[in-house]
Design a protein around this nucleic acid. Sequence first.
DNA 1: CTTGACCTTCCAGCAACTGGAAGCGGCATA
DNA 2: TATGCCGCTTCCAGTTGCTGGAAGGTCAAG
Lengths: 135, 135
Amino acid sequence: MNIGEASAASGLPAKTIRYYEEIGLLRPARDGNGYRSFAPRDVHRLAFLARARALGFSIEECRTLLALYEDDSRASADVKRLAERHLERIDRRIAELQALRATLAGLVAGCAGDRRPDCPILKDLAEAGQDVGPS
Amino acid sequence: MNIGEASAASGLPAKTIRYYEEIGLLRPARDGNGYRSFAPRDVHRLAFLARARALGFSIEECRTLLALYEDDSRASADVKRLAERHLERIDRRIAELQALRATLAGLVAGCAGDRRPDCPILKDLAEAGQDVGPS
DNA sequence: CTTGACCTTCCAGCAACTGGAAGCGGCATA
DNA sequence: TATGCCGCTTCCAGTTGCTGGAAGGTCAAG
């Protein structure tokens, strides 16, 4: 199975697959012509990575998850801990974005949006003394 | 006013201020010794930028906002349009994160988190056929 | 005169790819 | 056999918005 097929099967762009190899997330064999040759196991790894990335895990977390996945003597507690920390990050990020959203929505609501120059949005940007919370 | 004072006054790291100058967001004068010399107007610009960045506007959007701010004949509609587009981006991002959060929370809840290897989180990563929505 | 806190420039690196150039491999067609 | 085209290869550069660090100049205090 060459990279094009592996790409179609995993949903990852060929460029991304080459990048993942470069950073050591997988090591596909090579054919005589130098083409990468993906075994089912490699494609499975790629699909695993695609899914973990889609859930927002970082590359390094994906590396750890993959190692845990392939370690039959893993403890599910290790996986859970990783996922919980990620969940907390997501929650913090959502809270930050909701705070931004609230501030911004208030400013937008107050802006006439016409041809005159008066604009509470610019006024706020220019004059606000405090920030909108941790970023 | 040198860069250290401008940094303290605006809340932006000196490194960031130098970077903003490099990409043309401001052009502080120079003293005879080569040190940057920040006029009140420059510090004001920096504070404006800090606030706009904290609200999540991109550097290019900040450049536009700054130009609008300093253009007395601006139309508030232009500012509002920019802010509304940003608001939509934030909303999309929040929705994405909430979808992730829901999926991940479900997986975490199902994981025993003990010393045994069985783990629904890894199982999902390995087997899920569909993704979690647009990213 | 030295110390230490500033300041300067420039180069490298972060995350996680993405785009593009230059050049093979392999198959079909003229 | 020549030609075309697609897919594969590597390598380099760029993205966003900084951040760290090296090497060195400046300035006020002791």
